[in-house]
Simulated assay, not measured.
Amino acid sequence: MRLLHTSDWHLGRQFHGLPLLDEQARAMDQLVDLAGEAAVDLVVIAGDLYDRAIPPADAVRLFTDTLARLRATGAAVVAIAGNHDSHVRVSVYDELLAAQGVTIRGRWQRAAEPVLVQPRDGGAAVAVYPLPYLEPLLDGPELQPAARPARLDHQQAMDCALLPIHADRARRPGCRSVLVAHAFVAGGRTSESERDLSVGNAEAVAVPTFAGFDYVALGHLHGSQELDGPRLAYSGTPLPYSFSEQHHVKSVRLVELDARGNPAVEVVPLEAGRPLRTLEGELEQLLADPRLEEARGAWVRALLTDEQLPLQAMARLRQRFPHAVELRHQPPERASLAASERSQRILQASDPLQRTLAFFADQQGRVPDPEEERLLREALAQAAARRP
C-alpha cells in the first residue's frame, strides 16, 4: 500500500500579519498533483488542519476543495484534529463523509475504530487508526483511576488512548497497521511557530510508546524528521510559518508498505511559498550589497548592527526588499551580550538613575549624551515627586 503523509496545514494562518492563503492554495495544488501522479491509496493529514478553532470562511473552502480533489484521485483520506483545531467542528460530518472515503476524526473515543484501506493492487487491507490530539482526554474523567492525579499528562493520556487500539490490533492478526497522531514526541526538533503543549518537555511522549505499528504518521512539529528510522516520523508543514523554519526543506512523505508492513519512504520537497531570509549588518550595507539581490522576493528579517537605529529604517529596507516584515536592532555591544547578562548588569546598578542609564545603554548600544542624561534625570525627579 502507498500512502502520502502530510500535516500541519494551518490553513488561514498569517505571516507577520500578512495572509498566506494564496501560497497555501499552491501547496494544496502540489499535494493533489502528487497524490494523483503517485497513485497513492491513502492520504493522511496528521492534525492542525486549520490555524485556529474557528477558521475563516476562505480557509474552510480551501480545505473542503482540497479534500474533494484528493478523493477524486482515488485515494482514501484520513485526517485528525490537532491542538489548533476544534475537535467538534472539524469532525461534525465524520460519519457522513466516511461513507465517501473521507475520515476526519476529532473524538479520541473512536480512535480504536480503524479505517480499513484496501490497496489498489488488491493486497490485504491496512488498518489505519486516527488518534486526534488528546487535549479532551487530558481533562476528562473517563480513564482516571482515583490513584492518578486530577489531570493526566500527555504520556499517560497517550498510554490510555492506545490501550483499546492495541486491543483492536490483537483481534486482527497479520493485519498491517498505521497510526495517525498529533503529539510532541521526545527527541523531536522544535521551531518557534509551534504552539507549546506545556512547559519544557513535561508533556513529551516517549518513542517506545508507539511500538507495534508498521508506520506512525505524526503531526505537530513543523520540521520534517524521523525519530525511529522511517517508521515513526513528522512530515512537517507544507510552508514555513516562522523565521526559525527558514532552513527547513518543506516536504511530504510517500510511504510504501510492503506485504510485511516494512515502510520504504521517499521525502518529496514542496516548492510553494515565499522563501525566508535573515539579513544582518548595517542598514547602508544591506541596501547596497549586490549579493542580496536574490532576497528581494523573500520574506525578510533584518538584524541591524548600526550603533544607533537609523531613522525610517523599515521604510528604507522595504524600498529594496518589498517583503521585509521584521526588524531587530542589535548594535555591536548589545549583540555581544546574552539577554540574561544584560539584564543582570542593569539590575546590579546601584540606584534608579544608574539603572535608567544602564537600560538606555542596553537599548541604544551607547551611553546617553549630556542632553539625554539631563532629560532622564528630570524624568526620574518628576516621577519621584509624584510618589505619595
Rank of each mutant, 00 (worst) to 15 (best):
Q344H: 01
L375R: 08
Q109R: 15
V128M: 07
R105L: 00
R52T: 15
E113D: 12
P322W: 06
F213T: 13
A35R: 03
L143W: 11
P370T: 10
P141R: 11
V92Y: 03
V44C: 02
L221S: 11
Q285C: 04
L286Y: 09
Y133D: 10
V205Q: 02
G212Y: 07
A233F: 01
E194T: 08
A170C: 10
R328C: 04
L357M: 10
G200K: 07
R274K: 08
A81E: 08
A183N: 00
A167Q: 15
G82F: 00
D289P: 13
D159A: 10
V268F: 01
H16T: 14
A167W: 03
L152A: 15
G17A: 05
E256I: 05
H166A: 12
A338I: 04
E284A: 14
D351M: 08
L42F: 00
A202P: 00
R189T: 15
A39E: 14
A25Y: 05
A53V: 11
G229S: 08
M28D: 02
P230G: 05
I45K: 01
H323W: 15
R52Y: 09
T278Y: 09
F213R: 13
L97F: 01
A339R: 10
R342F: 04
H16K: 15
L287V: 07
Q14N: 11
W108E: 13
Y129A: 09
D65L: 01
P269F: 03
H154F: 14
A125Y: 03
G17W: 11
A161K: 13
L116D: 10
V300M: 04
